[in-house]
Amino acid sequence: MLDWLESISIAVWLRESPSIWANPTVLTLHTTGMGVLVGASWLLDLRLLGVGRTTPLPAFRWVFTAVALGLMLNLVTGVLLFLKNATTWGTAIPFLIKMSLVVASAATLIPIRTYVMNSGDSQVEVNGTTRLLAMVSIVCWTGAVTAGRLLAYLVP
């Protein structure tokens, strides 16, 4: 299965093409998506944990649009990067850890989104569950970025 994924034409092109539009561009887009996704998500998490607590929660609704765009970009570019290395990454522990952390942090965003979207126009206070979710989100994104970056060194 992993062998087959690695042999499909786009995976071969990404792995072997010297073109700037192959691996380099996909990797750069993946990093850009990370900056938007993790940056916007952290910003909201920090707000939920009490930074800038005078700003009402509905002001942060745009964060979910930014996160969704970043997540989509990184889903597409991430799948491409995975195809390129399917046989080595498919069984590599750091990769599996990264995926679990990405899924975990993305999952915390669902209840956080419901909470923020339903908050009152001038609501500034945050309940305990949401603060806990924000904490989990910060930790998981940090772990996901770390695992992703170390993947390049641990799994050749």
């Binding site: 990370m34 900056g35 916007a40 060194y153």
Partner: peptide
């Protein structure tokens, strides 16, 4: 040293990006 500095570099990038985006 190098991999850890790279990791911090990417985390710092994300933090700056989030704030400047806002």
């Amino acid at each position: 040293a190098w991999p850890l500095a790279e990791t911090v570099h990417f985390l710092g990038l994300s933090l700056s990006f989030g704030v400047l985006l806002a």
